[in-house]
């Protein structure tokens, strides 16, 4: 069973959100361990750019692994304030530490859709 930290919020598209998910605050986004296991080794990440406007539920990047490419959806709407540049040289961080060094981008939130809590996400992937 993959790890689903209880202090995070989750999207149905397997992104996690850390921080206060409310307008005006900055949240950190990554993909869940469940998603990372399903993808296999991520070898390349197409990141959004700082300053990009992202919309909840819309594609904002790509994750390439051996078997497939998967799209990265933003779980919230807002403006990208930071991206994890270390992933360009060490994309394996997404597999090794999906909730820590494998974070992908940060967003200053303008709007938040309904997100799942850990219990809800566990039920979603069951």
């Amino acid at each position: 069973m993959s790890s689903v930290p209880s202090d995070l919020l989750y999207s149905a598209e397997h992104e996690w959100v850390a921080g206060d998910a409310e307008a005006g605050s900055v949240v950190t986004v990554g993909i869940t361990e469940h998603a990372a296991v399903a993808l296999g080794d991520v070898v390349y990440v197409e990141l959004p750019s700082v300053g990009d406007e992202v919309t909840a539920g819309e594609v904002c990047g790509e994750l390439e692994s051996s078997k497939a490419v998967s799209e990265l959806y933003s779980p919230v709407s807002g403006t990208v304030t930071a991206v994890n540049e270390a992933l360009s040289s060490e994309p394996s961080a997404i597999n090794d530490e999906p909730y820590e060094s494998g974070w992908i981008f940060k967003v200053e939130v303008s709007d938040v859709p309904e997100l799942l809590d850990a219990e809800g996400y566990v039920a979603h992937i069951a």
Partner: peptide
């Protein structure tokens, strides 16, 4: 292993890291 359907068989696509296996 992560198992996938392949030609009607339930087969391992990877055990842990496909790059490490390669």
């Amino acid at each position: 292993a992560t198992l996938v359907e392949f030609a009607g068989w339930d087969m391992p696509v990877r055990y842990a890291s496909d790059v490490a296996e390669h």
